[in-house]
Design a protein around this nucleic acid. Structure first.
Length: 484
RNA sequence: CGGGACGUGGCGCAGUUUGGUAGCGCGCAGCGUUCGGGACGCUGAGGUCGCGGGUUCAAAUCCCGCCGUCCCGACCA
């Protein structure tokens, strides 16, 4: 639970450095983003959390469309037998699948699986949609909820039901599909996450053991949280012909021959919200980058007597109006004093605060406070719009830079196994070093240290050193970390 | 799903050892004074003590069973 001093109001947060999980839970709760719901592992996303998700959705969706994809929607129930056609896929997902066995007051003839992901039903359907190379590529995406039974849920990071988008594309050639998977990783995910969420990520490939069940190659973007644990922020898969073969998706090619289609799938989820919290948050609570913040600027009016109140509120309304189209909120609640409001908006991560009181009015200025750095500054009223507009970019850049510096300061090179084991634990972070490609070496690291390979180079270069684990020739460099 | 801890007004807790009137802080409602970094006073509302069974004149308290939450492990976006 952390210290939670009795003398302070209930809002006081545990310190990040003392109890990071408790800090995270309290931020989610006190910033009013989400709360656990009745069924184990499920959550209610509250309006403030949902507003953040809407901005994320917009950022991702715009880029999905800009890269030539269309949205559609598939049902959440999948006949159980469909799931079983792709062997690795079903084995990978079996432990976390929820199955509906009864409905309409009777036992179902065939159980229905609640989708843990939609490859099966989608590729079953694609078999009907694809006849010729002229039907390709298929570039589609859906926004959906999915269910993966979770034994140890955490709000946003790991819940039994979660929201995401899943893209499912079909292609004529392997090269084209691989290109698609990489393109989405960079032009949709990496771009949105770094530019909007200000969350720095490293793009790479997953090792075979960390691959999506049924994929030939899984591309990932990995972020580093402030407790020095890695977070898989999004994945994009090259599925080869595995699903086409399992579901009979054949087309007549340019050569007059039948071919199986090549597939990709890719997704990001509400987990990104957890990533934002743990990338930027500090001991005062959330810190949101302006591009993501539902409220970009909050105006806190300060007044004593009624006549003062009228003047201040009028000035506040005028400033707010001039800041359009920025997302501005004037906090004119009478039941709280200014100091309380400062703390509350800092907890909720609003990037810029304008304080406006009698002293400011007299001086023809407002007082500005940025969430990304300490301190306040005065700003003459005529310059407010220009200054705030500039601050949106400044705070956005500043939060991204702080996160990059933290990440880079916690990325290490290990020269031997002892260093690897030491560094992933203390201080923690990404630890890079040679790997021979053997799953046994990977498993040994996990057993010894809890760290897993988070990413491998997108385009491996000829290895120079030896495998950190077994000493044999390394085939490529791996980045290890303890992960969420 | 295994090991451990814990379930008492909305939140955080005391009370359980030794059975007997449910209590504190925060929050909430009304009124008043306040208002530049988490205000204060007065008044008030709110609890089948996780659920079910048992022991007893009497159970938050003792016994049995179940459910849930959190932490640690195996699985995961």
């Amino acid at each position: 639970m952390g210290p939670a001093p009795v003398s302070l109001p209930a809002m006081a947060l545990p310190r990040q450095s003392e109890d990071f999980p408790a800090w995270y839970q309290e931020v989610v709760k006190q910033a009013d983003m989400a709360e656990p719901s009745l069924a184990r592992g499920t959550m209610v996303i509250k309006p403030y959390g949902w507003a953040i998700w809407e901005v994320i959705q917009r950022a991702i969706d715009d880029r999905i469309k800009a890269t030539g994809h269309q949205n559609y929607y598939f049902p959440m129930f999948i006949p159980a037998h469909l799931l079983e056609k792709e062997k690795e896929h079903v084995e990978g997902f079996a432990p976390e699948v929820a199955v509906v066995t009864h409905a309409g007051g009777e036992k179902l003839e065939e159980p229905l699986v609640v989708r843990p992901t939609s490859e099966t039903i989608i590729w079953h359907t694609y078999a009907k949609w694809i006849q010729s190379y002229r039907d390709l590529p298929l570039l589609y995406n859906q926004w959906a909820n999915i269910v993966r039974w979770e034994l140890r849920p955490r709000l946003f990071l790991r819940t039994t039901e979660f929201l995401w988008q899943e893209g499912h594309t079909a292609h004529e050639t392997a090269e084209e599909a691989i290109h698609e998977a990489r393109k989405v990783l960079h032009e949709v995910y990496l771009d949105a996450v770094e530019r909007v969420l200000a969350m720095p990520v490293r793009a790479g490939r997953k090792s075979p053991s960390e691959r999506f069940a049924g994929a030939e190659e899984t591309y990932t973007m990995e972020a580093l949280m402030r407790d020095r644990k890695a977070l898989q922020a999004g994945t994009s898969h090259y599925l080869g012909q595995n699903f086409a073969k399992a579901y009979g998706v054949k087309f007549l090619g340019r050569d007059g021959q039948e071919h199986f289609a090549y597939a990709t799938s890719w997704g990001v989820s509400t987990r990104l919200i957890g990533g934002v919290i743990m990338t930027h948050g500090d001991d005062k609570g959330l810190r949101l980058p302006p591009a993501l913040a539902p409220i970009q600027v909050v105006v806190v009016p300060i007044y004593r007597a009624e006549d003062e109140k009228a003047l201040v509120l009028e000035a506040a309304a005028k400033i707010a109006a001039e800041l359009t189209p920025l997302r501005v909120h004037v906090d004119d609640r009478a039941e709280f004093r200014p100091g309380y409001k400062f703390n509350e908006w800092e907890l909720k991560g609003v990037p810029v605060r304008i304080e406006l009181g009698p002293r400011d009015l007299d001086a023809g200025q407002v007082t500005l406070a940025r969430r990304d750095v300490e301190g306040k500054q005065a700003c003459p009223v005529p310059e407010v719009t220009a200054r705030i507009t500039a601050l949106m970019d400044e705070v956005q850049d500043s939060l991204f830079r702080q996160a990059v510096e933290f990440r880079d300061a916690h990325t290490f090179r290990a020269n031997d196994y002892g260093e690897l084991a030491k560094l992933v634990d203390d201080p923690g972070g990404f630890v890079v070093g040679g790997w021979c490609g053997d799953a046994e070496c990977e498993a040994k690291v996990k057993a010894d240290t809890k760290a897993t390979i988070r990413y491998l180079p997108l385009d491996p270069e000829p290895a120079e050193g030896d495998c950190l684990v077994c000493g044999r020739r390394a085939t490529e460099e791996a980045a290890w970390a303890v992960a969420y």
